[in-house]
């Protein structure tokens, strides 16, 4: 294998991996903060791409501005769906509600939300498949290694978003409360903090991350009504590989799956996906909690 090919495969792996990481960080924040396994996450990702399309292509805004706006819009959509659906649902739960019942009902509610978002987007934007022409069409050509600038920008933006997220989670009071809520909401309530709005922010933050992932990927991939259904399986898989509740694990899992897919397609062909799935199951046999997570009930 030539060094050029190796670099190219690494860049491919980083691009797809960074999108998985953004998606899964969102899923994880929602899952740990609000105890919701969010099946509508793929639809939020799709919606993010469509919102970016609207701002960037129809309203001719700057790409960075359009991206920020799509993140903000999705945060709003997330907050509204939490207030409209999950907040009402969580009023039904009491201390004696079993964990599996909570998980199941909130997952099913998110399936309902998914159906509505999916078909709603389809009706609003039509069945035609869309896309945007990349604002960074240049190709970086160094010694015969060709790398599209779009990919570099995507990797860079993902790193930026991750750094911003970690700053928020670890350096601000708000982030500390959020992390505390994911461990023990009762204890946080006892500190005199209104956890309700923390739950709302968790869901909004997770949705915004999905929206940003969808927005970032729009110049690289196409924007279609089915894009959300395809990515959600992979996101769940990365969530498991990395381990639920570990940011480092999520990043390691996203990169690992990205590398496996990139190198797998090169050397095994289309069947690589199946190998990745089987490998994940094998990993889970030996480490039930994922690579860096802890096995929890």
């Amino acid at each position: 294998m030539s060094p050029g090919l190796f670099i190219q495969l690494i860049v491919n792996a980083l691009t797809i991996g960074s999108i998985y990481i953004l998606m899964v960080l969102g899923l994880d924040i929602i899952l740990r903060g609000t105890k919701i396994l969010n099946f509508a996450h793929g639809q939020l990702y799709m919606l993010g791409a469509y919102v970016l399309l609207l701002f960037f292509q129809t309203l001719n805004l700057n790409f960075a501005l359009a991206l920020i706006l799509s993140g903000a819009t999705l945060a709003l959509v997330g907050a509204l769906s939490y207030l409209g659906v999950f907040a009402v649902l969580s009023r039904r739960f009491t201390v004696s509600t079993t964990f599996s019942y909570r998980l199941l009902l909130s997952a099913m509610a998110s399936v309902g939300l998914m159906m509505i978002l999916q078909q709603g987007t389809l009706l609003c934007f039509g069945t035609q498949e869309r896309g945007i022409l990349s604002p960074f069409p240049q190709i970086i050509d160094v010694f015969g290694v060709r790398i599209s600038l779009t990919r570099v920008v995507i990797i860079f933006l993902s790193i930026l978003i991750c750094i911003g997220l970690f700053f928020l989670m670890y350096k601000t009071r708000f982030g500390k409360i959020m992390r505390a809520v994911s461990y023990d909401p009762e204890a946080v309530t006892l500190q005199g903090i209104n956890t309700f709005w923390i739950f709302v922010s968790c869901f909004a933050l997770g949705s915004a991350l999905a929206g940003l992932a969808g927005g970032i990927i729009a110049p690289l991939f196409s924007v279609t009504p089915s894009m959300g259904q395809n990515i959600i399986f992979m996101s769940f898989l990365v969530l498991l590989v990395g381990g639920i509740g570990s940011y480092r694990g999520t990043i390691a899992g996203g990169l690992l799956v990205g590398l496996l897919l990139s190198f797998g397609f090169q050397f095994l062909g289309g069947i690589a996906e199946l190998f990745v799935f089987i490998l994940v199951i094998v990993i889970l046999v030996f480490r039930p909690g994922g690579l860096l997570g802890e096995a929890t009930e």
Partner: peptide, 22 residues
């Protein structure tokens, strides 16, 4: 079954994909 909770949910979801692709 060694895993319970969320992990079990997702493993079974992936398992369906494995069966289908296989």
């Amino acid at each position: 079954v060694r895993n319970a909770g969320v992990a079990f949910v997702i493993i079974t979801l992936i398992f369906v994909q494995v069966i289908v692709i296989a």
